[in-house]
Deep mutational scan, measured.
Amino acid sequence: MPEGSASLQLAVGDRVVYPNQGVCRVSAIDVKEVAGQKLTFVTMRREEDGAVVMVPEGKVLAIGVRKVASAE
């Protein structure tokens, strides 16, 4: 991610809310080559049905992904 860009610090195992998809758990953060460029992807699995969603790390905030609020 370019320096100075806002990002959401995620780790494998974090629970997040993905708008219009529901609650997901981060299952992987991997670098993949797409069209000759190396990009970091956040892979999330929906808790409702296990569907897998992959989002480029740089788009996580723009999409509206946020961490699940704690009970505290």
Rank of each mutant, 00 (worst) to 15 (best):
M1I: 12
M1P: 12
M1A: 13
M1E: 11
M1G: 13
P2F: 09
P2A: 12
P2E: 12
P2R: 07
E3K: 07
E3R: 04
E3M: 11
E3S: 11
G4Q: 12
G4K: 11
G4M: 11
G4T: 13
G4S: 13
G4H: 11
G4V: 13
S5C: 04
S5A: 13
S5M: 12
S5T: 13
S5R: 08
S5K: 10
A6Y: 10
A6M: 12
A6I: 13
A6K: 13
A6L: 11
A6F: 11
A6D: 10
A6S: 12
A6C: 04
S7M: 12
S7L: 12
S7Y: 10
L8Q: 08
L8F: 10
L8P: 07
L8T: 08
L8C: 01
L8S: 08
L8I: 09
L8A: 08
Q9L: 09
Q9W: 09
Q9A: 10
Q9N: 11
Q9K: 14
L10P: 01
L10I: 08
L10M: 04
L10Y: 03
L10K: 01
L10E: 01
L10Q: 00
L10A: 01
L10F: 08
A11R: 14
A11V: 12
A11H: 11
A11T: 09
A11L: 08
A11P: 01
A11Q: 13
A11K: 14
A11I: 09
V12G: 00
V12R: 02
V12D: 01
V12A: 02
V12T: 03
G13F: 02
G13Y: 01
G13S: 01
G13D: 02
G13A: 01
G13M: 02
G13R: 01
G13I: 02
D14A: 03
D14K: 01
D14G: 01
D14M: 07
D14S: 03
D14Q: 04
R15G: 02
R15H: 06
V16T: 01
V16E: 01
V16A: 03
V16D: 01
V16L: 08
V17I: 14
V17F: 15
V17G: 02
V17C: 00
V17Q: 07
V17M: 13
V17T: 07
Y18G: 05
Y18I: 14
Y18N: 02
Y18A: 05
Y18Q: 02
Y18E: 02
Y18M: 14
Y18F: 14
Y18R: 02
Y18H: 13
P19R: 07
P19N: 08
N20W: 06
N20I: 05
N20K: 09
Q21F: 15
Q21G: 15
Q21R: 10
Q21D: 03
Q21C: 07
Q21P: 01
Q21S: 07
G22E: 03
G22D: 03
V23C: 00
V23N: 04
V23W: 06
V23T: 07
V23Q: 03
V23L: 13
V23D: 01
C24Q: 00
C24G: 01
C24A: 02
C24V: 04
C24T: 00
C24N: 00
C24M: 14
C24E: 00
R25L: 11
R25D: 01
R25N: 03
R25H: 04
R25Q: 08
R25E: 07
R25K: 07
R25T: 13
V26N: 00
V26W: 01
V26F: 01
V26M: 01
V26D: 00
V26A: 01
V26R: 00
S27H: 08
S27N: 05
S27R: 05
S27G: 03
S27T: 15
A28R: 11
A28D: 05
A28P: 00
A28W: 05
A28C: 00
I29F: 07
I29S: 01
I29Y: 02
I29N: 00
I29L: 05
I29V: 06
D30R: 08
D30F: 15
D30N: 10
D30P: 01
D30E: 14
D30W: 15
V31D: 04
V31F: 07
V31L: 06
V31G: 01
V31P: 02
V31I: 11
V31H: 06
K32D: 03
K32R: 14
K32N: 04
K32M: 14
K32F: 15
K32S: 06
E33F: 12
E33D: 09
E33C: 05
E33G: 03
E33Y: 13
V34P: 01
V34H: 06
V34N: 04
V34Q: 05
A35H: 13
A35S: 10
A35G: 14
A35E: 13
A35T: 04
A35Q: 10
G36T: 02
G36N: 05
G36D: 03
G36H: 03
G36P: 00
G36W: 03
G36E: 02
G36A: 02
Q37C: 02
Q37H: 08
Q37S: 07
Q37W: 05
Q37E: 11
Q37F: 08
K38R: 10
K38I: 10
K38Y: 12
K38P: 06
K38M: 13
K38N: 07
K38S: 08
K38G: 03
L39E: 08
L39C: 01
L39R: 07
L39H: 15
T40F: 06
T40Y: 07
T40Q: 04
T40P: 02
T40I: 12
T40C: 01
T40R: 15
T40L: 09
T40D: 00
F41K: 00
F41H: 01
F41I: 13
F41Q: 02
F41T: 04
F41N: 00
F41P: 00
F41E: 00
F41A: 00
F41V: 09
V42H: 00
V42R: 00
V42P: 00
V42M: 03
V42L: 08
V42K: 00
V42N: 00
V42D: 00
T43S: 07
T43L: 07
T43Y: 13
T43I: 14
T43H: 06
T43E: 05
T43P: 00
T43K: 05
M44F: 15
M44T: 00
M44W: 02
M44C: 04
M44N: 00
M44A: 00
R45W: 09
R45A: 06
R45N: 06
R45G: 01
R45Y: 12
R46G: 03
R46Y: 02
R46F: 07
R46H: 05
R46P: 00
R46W: 03
R46C: 14
R46S: 06
R46Q: 02
E47V: 06
E47A: 03
E47T: 03
E47L: 08
E47M: 06
E47D: 05
E47K: 02
E47I: 07
E47F: 04
E48Y: 13
E48T: 13
E48C: 06
E48R: 14
E48D: 09
E48F: 14
E48I: 14
D49H: 02
D49R: 01
D49I: 03
D49T: 05
D49A: 02
D49K: 01
D49E: 02
D49L: 03
D49N: 06
D49Q: 02
G50I: 03
G50Y: 03
G50R: 02
G50L: 03
A51V: 11
A51N: 06
A51C: 05
A51S: 08
V52D: 05
V52F: 12
V52N: 04
V52C: 03
V52H: 05
V52Y: 13
V52M: 10
V53H: 05
V53I: 15
V53K: 04
V53R: 03
V53P: 01
V53E: 03
V53W: 15
V53F: 15
V53S: 04
M54E: 11
M54C: 04
M54L: 08
M54G: 02
M54T: 13
M54P: 02
M54S: 10
M54R: 09
M54H: 08
V55D: 03
V55W: 05
V55Q: 04
V55C: 04
V55S: 03
V55Y: 05
P56L: 13
P56D: 09
P56G: 05
P56R: 06
P56K: 05
P56S: 10
P56C: 06
P56E: 15
E57T: 07
E57G: 13
E57L: 15
E57D: 05
E57M: 15
E57Q: 09
E57Y: 15
E57S: 15
E57N: 05
G58E: 15
G58W: 15
G58C: 07
G58A: 14
K59Y: 14
K59P: 06
K59M: 15
K59F: 14
K59T: 13
K59H: 14
V60C: 04
V60P: 02
V60Q: 03
L61G: 10
L61V: 14
L61W: 09
L61Q: 13
L61F: 08
L61M: 09
L61S: 12
L61I: 14
A62K: 08
A62F: 07
A62L: 10
A62R: 07
A62C: 06
A62G: 08
A62N: 06
A62P: 07
A62E: 15
A62D: 11
A62Q: 13
I63K: 07
I63M: 14
I63C: 08
I63L: 15
I63T: 08
G64M: 12
G64C: 09
G64P: 05
G64Y: 08
V65N: 03
V65C: 07
V65K: 04
V65H: 04
R66Q: 13
R66W: 07
R66F: 11
R66K: 14
R66N: 08
R66S: 10
R66D: 07
R66Y: 14
R66C: 09
K67I: 15
K67E: 06
K67M: 12
K67T: 06
K67L: 15
K67N: 05
V68D: 06
V68L: 14
V68C: 13
V68T: 06
V68Q: 06
V68P: 07
V68M: 09
A69E: 13
A69V: 12
A69Q: 12
A69K: 10
A69D: 12
A69G: 13
A69H: 10
A69R: 08
S70K: 10
S70F: 10
S70D: 13
S70I: 11
A71K: 10
A71P: 11
A71Q: 12
A71L: 10
A71C: 11
E72F: 10
E72P: 12
E72K: 09
